[in-house]
Design a protein around this nucleic acid. Structure first.
Length: 384
DNA sequence: TCTGGGGTCCTAGGACCC
DNA sequence: TCTGGGGTCCTAGGACCC
């Protein structure tokens, strides 16, 4: 039997910081933006277990974190340091299997052949010990017949445990779990399932698959099978390069000046060109995203006739796409209101109503550029 | 509660082709 | 004169993940 051994680092960024800030041991702290006494803009990236006890969570706005625990200590993120730690863990896993795969900065898995669940559990505990001793980092490990199940198991193993799901106990293991335990089911799908009276995976298993089509769409069949413990054998995933690269940034204060938007996008496109050059990658599709103050996101993309790595092409395309979004927003806001009797010139007013919070760009349809060194870096899917 | 910055995958409609 | 069934590519939006 081929098992997936899924390694999920515990509170990864916070655990990395503990290695070099031992004084933070035992105190509630988080890797986050500056909370600025509750007025900070930004979120918690990783909270220590002491901070979690106070209610802090990843992705929580720092203003909320501050409200819950004003005395929490915070550290600004240092992604280069976390990447380095991630590479060390990955090297350890690669030594156990050349087929190790990383799925994010803090998750990775490798295949393990064994007919005995207890043997694979011993293997998992050994890896966990190595990661703790060699990298000084805690992790949780899930072991199961498929990657999805192994990831679910690793969540249940947190913090610091090992959980094995044997092939014949899949349905029993899953039954009591909420639907959210399945990766891919988020807040929206959870609500849609709730409307169909499906809350747990036991509910999901006994609901006829036709009734799941509406809330789950294309996922209905495979999730229904999963909940019933029907395990489909899958090929181990191939190692692939990234599908897209991008950059985004949020203004300190929302802006309504088109020139702010354009100059920030230009800065991002120059910085993205630089990293693409470093990685030796060409692109064919360019996407510009603009998030308005009301959080609605607008996007425009263009696919070029052929792949390129030219910084000038990127910045020109980005500018054109951005102009098109701004243009459309201008005419949209002119159409929706603006009696001419309002103070100020009508055109200026219309522009001013268009608040921009965040701008971003990304390129996709990637390929190694001609003459680029085909190194491990080209293949590894290192995402921050 | 008032939301960062990096990604992946899916859907649906229209253009276009055979 | 009103018209099938299939395919691919492109674009916009959205759910979701860490």
């Amino acid at each position: 039997v081929r098992w997936a051994v899924y390694v999920d680092m515990d509170a990864f960024y916070a655990s990395c910081e503990l290695k070099r800030h031992p004084e933070l041991r035992g105190v509630p702290f988080a890797v986050s933006a500056d909370p600025r006494g509750g007025a900070g803009r930004g979120v918690v990236l990783s909270a220590s277990y002491e901070a979690r006890a106070k209610g802090l969570r990843s992705a929580m706005p720092v203003s909320q974190a501050f409200a819950l625990c004003p005395e929490y200590r915070w550290v600004l993120p240092d992604f280069a340091f976390y990447e380095e730690n991630s590479r060390q863990v990955m090297a350890l896993l690669r030594a156990r299997s050349a087929d190790s795969r990383s799925f994010s900065i803090d998750e990775a898995a490798y295949p393990f052949e064994s007919i005995s669940p207890s043997e694979v559990e011993v293997e998992a505990r050994e890896v966990q010990r190595q990661v703790r001793e060699a990298c000084a980092l805690p992790c949780s490990i899930g072991v199961a017949p498929t990657l999805t199940l192994a990831k679910i198991a690793s969540d249940r193993a947190k913090p610091g445990g090992v959980v094995v799901i044997a092939p014949d106990s899949v349905a029993t293991f899953l039954a009591p779990l909420p639907v959210r335990a399945i990766p891919g089911i988020g807040r929206v799908t959870e609500a849609a399932l709730e409307a169909a009276a499906v809350r747990t995976l036991a509910d999901l298993a006994r609901t006829p698959v036709e009734r799941l089509r509406r809330p789950l769409g294309g996922m209905a069949g495979s999730l229904h099978d999963l909940a019933r413990g029907v395990v489909h054998e899958e090929p181990w995933p191939e190692e692939e390069g990234p599908r897209s690269r991008g950059a985004m940034s949020t203004f300190d204060r929302d802006t309504s000046e088109p020139s702010d938007v354009l100059s920030e996008l230009d800065r991002l496109s120059r910085s993205l060109s630089e990293s693409l050059a470093k990685e030796g990658r060409m692109f064919r599709t360019v996407t510009v995203r603009i998030r308005r103050s009301d959080f609605q996101q607008l996007q425009r993309s263009r696919t070029l006739p052929q792949r390129t790595a030219d910084p000038g092409t990127l910045s020109r395309t980005v500018r054109q796409l951005a102009e098109s979004v701004l243009q459309e927003e201008r005419s949209r806001s002119r159409a929706t209101q603006r009696p001419l009797s309002e103070p100020g010139n009508a055109r200026g007013n219309a522009v001013r109503r268009f608040g921009v919070r965040t701008v971003g760009i990304s390129v996709s349809d990637l390929a190694p550029s001609l003459g680029a060194q085909r190194s491990l870096d080209d293949l590894s899917s290192s995402r921050a």
